[in-house]
Nucleic acid binder design. Structure first.
Lengths: 247, 247
DNA sequence: CGCTTGATTGATGCCATTCAACATGGGTGG
DNA sequence: CCACCCATGTTGAATGGCATCAATCAAGCG
């Protein structure tokens, strides 16, 4: 892991990322999908003044598991991973967040898991305590946060079935279908995975070699097509569905 | 699984469990730990009139994965499991709930996972839509629900590390420590597991035989002591901690 | 007592990991 | 622009951990 390196190079997070002050909610691309969507213009303005826009670079870790919980944020742009790891370095990715998602742990003293940027990303960052105070007084915000957390919990629990009970083949097939749903293919049907093999392995709870073998197997079977490191085309979706369920 | 049997015997849930009407919040044993804790007496009274007390028997399934989402509930007494399963019958337990916990999926049309009683249990049951409506208008309730959901999400994500990255030995050790924290031992230090070997296996994502082998191994090492089907004594907690982290 | 259900133990095989070599390709500096 | 390099990905062979199949054991119960 290059976390130590990131830390040395960039310093601990809250003080680090380059702020882009002066930016308001007016041009915000996620304004009506993020948790602030239901706020009145004046409330949104108030919230906006609590926070600030920052950018983080791919590989940079935004929050560390177990640290004092200082900030929460909306993801304006980019992709980040949430992860935990064992004492001896085995890592499990417990979530991947995209534009308009919310990160951090409101109403809690500790950061439950690390947050690391997979791509360059822009965040709308709030000091946690200030955000907590604001949320307590704004039911609409709190309601959206609740909805989002309930959805996250459902998805996370579904993923437990994959981690605990599915074979490597089923895991990879499920993962590819998931990506196919989330990502827009280009005109040839090719999609560009936002994750390395190692990251895929850390999501599925298997090794990088197993990911690679399963992918080439699926290619040999004509179910998918591989192109370069990150390109995949889902040739036979129905077959993938079948394999994902254990056919 | 005897789910089909339960269904045939008792009918689909919402109409089934024997109601115990007339009971109020006054003598409720979980009143100040459940989500209703922060409500004013009059609000609590209102909420109480929306719901009703029911009892369910061990083995009975309260909600079915994928069904229309009709009810939510407070657990007054007993233990229940939340589970999902693959088409071919492999099951993964995604949560275990105890007295004062909340079950069901507010603000959602579908039940995301099944809920089954592990012991006889008493529930304070609410029609989902009515509960949703009440919650929307009561920030205190919604806030507590949010807190609880955030905690659940943290715990669930932690469990993903176990499912995805830990060995059978580590899984069993972690499970036993978790039980040791949650359950009160008797004067000899013995604790009574609320789960069968099959259920433990379904929580840890391994087979019943592997659970059994790991337990007897730990016993041979003098780390734990086994007594009957459900009795365990954690003899050497420090050693267990070490094994849980991969020593 | 037999019957049933749950738990333990044993034998065997397979899938995923591990260790290792090799390929690829994106990026950089000469 | 090409050669080189390092990170990333693929492939191979061997090991081992866990699942599977199956027999035995231990309780509870009619």
């Amino acid at each position: 892991m290059d976390m130590q390196f990131d830390l040395a190079q960039n310093g601990a997070f809250p003080t680090v990322p380059r702020p882009c002050p002066g930016q308001t909610c007016d041009g915000c691309t996620v304004r009506d999908r993020a948790i602030c969507a239901d706020l009145s213009p004046t409330d949104r303005e108030t919230l906006s003044r609590i926070g600030r826009r920052v950018t983080v670079h791919a590989g940079q870790t935004v929050m560390w598991e177990g640290d004092d919980n200082m900030v929460v944020a909306n993801v304006v742009d980019g992709t980040l991973k949430l992860a935990t790891s064992t004492g001896d370095g085995r890592e499990q990715i417990v979530g991947v967040v995209y534009a308009s998602d919310f990160i951090g742990r409101p109403f809690g003293a500790r950061t439950p898991h690390s947050v690391t940027a997979l791509t360059d990303a822009r965040l709308c960052l709030f000091p946690r305590r200030a955000f907590d105070g604001f949320a307590r007084n704004h039911g609409a915000l709190q309601h959206r946060l609740l909805q989002r957390t309930l959805d996250d919990l459902d998805r996370t629990r579904d993923w437990m079935l994959l981690l605990g009970r599915k074979t490597a083949r089923e895991k990879v097939a499920t993962f590819l279908l998931d990506m196919g749903r989330r990502l827009r293919p280009d005109r040839t049907g090719m999609i560009d995975l936002p994750l390395s093999r190692q990251q895929i392995a850390d999501i599925l709870g298997i090794t990088i070699e197993t990911v690679s073998r399963q992918m080439t197997d699926l290619k040999r079977q004509g179910v998918i097509d591989l192109c370069g490191r990150r390109g995949v085309r889902l040739v036979d979706g129905a077959a993938l569905e079948a394999l994902a369920e254990g056919a």
